[in-house]
C-alpha cells in the first residue's frame, strides 16, 4: 500500500513542479519568477523525501538539507538583487 501511495504522491509532486516551472516561464514580473523558483526548490525537498522512502535509504538526508539551504539563499539573493541591484550591501545604514 505504501508503495502505491508513494507513487501517487510522486506524480502529484511532479505535476506541481511542472506548474511552478510554467509560472517561471510565463511570469509577468521578476518577482513572480522568484516565487515560482523558491517553490520549485521547496517541492524538490519533498520529492527527494519520497524517493528516500521508495529506495529505502537515508543517504539523501544531507542532500535535502543542502537543497533547503540553497533554495533559501537563492531566494534571498534574488530579492536583494531585485531591490537594490546588488547582492551584498556594504554600506547598509
Amino acid at each position: 500500500m505504501l508503495y502505491t501511495v508513494s507513487h501517487i504522491t510522486l506524480v502529484l509532486m511532479s505535476l506541481s513542479i511542472a506548474i511552478c516551472l510554467y509560472r517561471v516561464f510565463i511570469g509577468p514580473t521578476i518577482a513572480d519568477r522568484i516565487v515560482a523558483l523558491d517553490t520549485t526548490g521547496i517541492n524538490l525537498i519533498g520529492f527527494i523525501g519520497i524517493i528516500m522512502i521508495l529506495q529505502d535509504t537515508v543517504a539523501y538526508s544531507e542532500a535535502i538539507l543542502v537543497i533547503a539551504i540553497l533554495a533559501f539563499i537563492g531566494t534571498i539573493a534574488f530579492s536583494k538583487f531585485l531591490e537594490g541591484g546588488v547582492v551584498i550591501d556594504r554600506n547598509h545604514h
Binding site: 504522491t9 509532486m13 505535476l15 506541481s16 506548474i19 511552478c20 510554467y22 513572480d32 516565487v35 517553490t39
Partner: peptide, 25 residues
C-alpha cells in the same frame, strides 16, 4: 504522504491562479 502531496499540488494551482505576486506568495 497524501496530505503532503495534495497540499503541495493545491499550492501550485494557487501559484497558477492568483492574479498578483502577493497572492502567489
Amino acid at each position: 504522504l497524501l496530505i503532503g502531496g495534495g497540499l503541495t499540488f493545491i499550492g501550485s494551482i494557487g501559484i497558477l491562479r492568483f492574479p498578483d505576486v502577493y497572492g502567489r506568495l
